[in-house]
Design a protein around this nucleic acid. Structure first.
Lengths: 225, 225
DNA sequence: ACTCTCTGTTAAGCCTGTATTAATCCGTTC
DNA sequence: GAACGGATTAATACAGGCTTAACAGAGAGT
């Protein structure tokens, strides 16, 4: 999952982005509104964290401009204690949630996770397709009743695919959402990972959770059952 | 802790509630959905255990109605083996965890404790995983019947891990919860402590209570027995 | 002052993931 | 049906994370 963090205070930005990366997110950083807008429009962000206390109200106008462009990316705003009119304005401008500073980092992480899931259309922490069950909290994957060991990249790939089950995901899109920076075009890491995943998620080849759409990408099976 | 047990089968309900009381819980008992709903809305329940196999789908609608009222009480559902579509429907309706019948009572207790602790955010006195038992009040740790001497830092580490058993805990998260302020990034204290803990908690290496998730962190085993 | 225990550092070595390469397979197009 | 290009898969190299032992320094207790 790729996040955008817009925060002018360097120290806070550093520690937050570091922590978010530790928790497995790819993080783009911006120090002001315009820079944030650039990332939000040029890169496929899964969620934006925007400090409304940026100098010159640029956080506010960032949200407005992002929404004017028709982007539906979930936005979490940070406001200073006491400035509840900012918070209200932010929500009205199209933010999805807010957090009052100072906050416990874990609270931020919890909300980020919830928002990401919610925006993908999953209310619970458990996502499933047929016999495959993914727990975003324990990062455990079950196939039937068996727990399957996934490495951290394998996990990121399934998570992204399952969160967008039923959609065609191009390989570029997958890399962009999973890797911190742009990746070598002529590498076939993704294919390799898809291959490993298929083996682990569907060892006897009966369920075929990941379809290949030649030239277009992959599609995770969306299966209620 | 006050539990609500909704189970139509008299014998099972009696034995379960007895056992739960032995473990120190106050238990309200209901035999069907409507009765359960009454308790859930009229009394301050900390956790509800609901059998989805109640006659007339009333377990399912109980969950839905509880959630409709905006109650966040954690709900653990019981389903019969093979009916995983019930379990799925239950989770989607807002249940927090499930257990497949028949189950070992210890497994139920483990999950009840885990759910209560997690949802309430505060500690049950005794936390258990397999042969490992941690008493947060006396700060004593037992492995099987043997008491294990832990130093204060070792204890903090196990306590945090066990309180969040089943979750992936990044090393940053662990340090942040254990140390006052941010710690030297290129120190490997955590690894060292994990190593010492493993030796003490699992001297013959058979139970493996602490899993390593390379690049992601550690996960304490969430286990019955 | 001496000892003992605990914490945290260092460093060596192991091991697991990751990404590359390359051989092969399959679909599409002509 | 041949040729091309994308997709699959196995094998492998390498980096860097994890484990572990050994030890130094701090601090408590005697």
């Amino acid at each position: 999952m790729r996040l955008l963090l817009v925060e002018d205070e360097q120290a806070l930005r550093d520690s937050l982005s570091q922590r978010l990366r530790d928790e497995g997110f790819a993080v783009d950083e911006a120090g002001d509104g315009p820079e944030g807008l650039y990332f939000a429009t040029e890169y496929p962000i899964d969620l934006a964290i925007v400090d409304l206390g940026l100098p010159g109200f640029s956080g506010m106008s960032l949200i407005e401009q992002v929404r004017e462009q028709g982007l539906t990316v979930p936005i979490l705003i940070l406001t200073a204690r006491g400035n509840w009119e900012h918070k209200v304005a932010g929500l009205e401008a199209g933010a999805d949630d807010y957090l009052v500073k100072p906050f416990v980092v874990e609270e931020l992480l919890a909300r980020v996770n919830a928002l990401v899931r919610r925006s993908a259309g999953w209310a619970q922490a458990v996502i499933r397709s047929g016999p495959i069950e993914l727990n975003t909290k324990s990062q455990e994957v079950l196939v039937g009743d068996e727990s399957v060991e996934l490495t951290s990249f394998e996990y990121k790939v399934v998570e992204y695919l399952m969160m967008h089950a039923g959609e065609v995901i191009s390989k570029t899109r997958l890399t962009e959402h999973i890797y911190q920076q742009d990746y070598d075009r002529d590498s076939n890491v993704i294919e390799v990972f898809i291959g490993r995943l298929r083996k682990k998620l569907d060892p006897n080849g009966s369920y075929k959770p990941i379809e290949t759409l030649r030239g277009r990408g992959y599609r995770f099976r969306l299966d209620s059952q």
